[in-house]
Design a protein around this nucleic acid. Structure first.
Lengths: 161, 161
DNA sequence: TTCAATGCAAACCCTTTGCACGGTA
DNA sequence: TACCGTGCAAAGGGTTTGCATTGAA
């Protein structure tokens, strides 16, 4: 889990409280429920993939998801990973991100919306959200005569030493 | 050429002045000069591609650039288009944009920086720039402990009726 | 004359798909 | 029992690359 906000501290008498805002992620059970609700079947292969997705905190690509799911259940094929990812995306329970022409990366869709900062050295993805930027985008689209369907903001950066 | 700003009007006495801000684009000669300055050779194939790039106002992909350059000079191959695009990108005279996992699209790099609004119905690309958004991005990256290398903001929208 | 740039075709990577089989509901 | 979901292998689309050849400097 990557935090989207900076940690902060409280001072209470002679104590200091270190705080950090974390986010809840979907459980494998919740992902299963979404499939069931859509009348789709819960196969052993899907169970393995859902467990991997629920556990992942690093925006893995299809290949990496296959590697992890295959470790849980060797009968999971790469084709099924791709097919199931597409299905889950259609159900709206995961998001697909295409960063800079590289293989697509996936994450469970728990939070309403956020953008990404990608560490160009490590590939690590950090999530953030700015209501101000959201508002400005809406304003720009309106001025240009458009209604926003969706948008992506990606910042590529290096960790400051 | 797509304008990034809304047209505006001035009223002078009994006259109305319709104004629209347009942008200058690099000429084929300027692109050639960049290659020459880097010690690279000006071939007939490159001349054709540079002419196409200088003339394009619609962010074409490699295939479309090849189609247009091939019309000027049939000896231009798709491989050379790809190789030359990579070279020009390295020289910093063109930009490559990977929109939503689709084939990369290119434009001459004339303006300092801008973002894109993509019409999801027509594929048309409209350029815009917001200093406020730029500033907010820098602020966010700083808070998260990063220096920005580059970034992309893409708004996908439908033309308002 | 030299060696960067080229065309061609094959290879590459990521992703999708056709087909016959197998397991969920 | 249906028929959805699967594995496998082949195909697909965009892009890169190896190799012998060509042509810009």
């Amino acid at each position: 889990m990557h935090q989207a906000f900076l940690p902060w501290q409280l001072h209470v008498g002679r104590f200091r409280v270190n705080c950090r805002l974390m986010e809840e992620t979907k459980t494998a059970e919740e992902l299963q429920a979404a499939l069931r609700a859509a009348g789709l079947r819960i196969t052993e292969q899907r169970k393995a993939l859902l467990a991997v997705l629920a556990d992942a905190d690093d925006h893995p690509d299809a290949n990496e998801l296959h590697r992890r799911a295959h470790k849980i259940n060797p009968s999971v094929s790469l084709a099924t990973v791709y097919r199931t990812l597409t299905t889950l995306e259609e159900q709206g329970v995961i998001d697909r991100h295409a960063f800079e022409g590289k293989p697509a990366r996936f994450e469970t869709n728990d939070k309403p919306h956020h953008d990404h900062l990608i560490d160009i050295d490590s590939g690590e993805v950090i999530e953030f959200r700015s209501d101000k930027i959201e508002a400005l985008q809406a304003e720009i689209a309106r001025e240009l005569g458009y209604d926003i369907a969706h948008h992506r903001l990606e910042i590529y950066g290096k960790k400051r030493k």
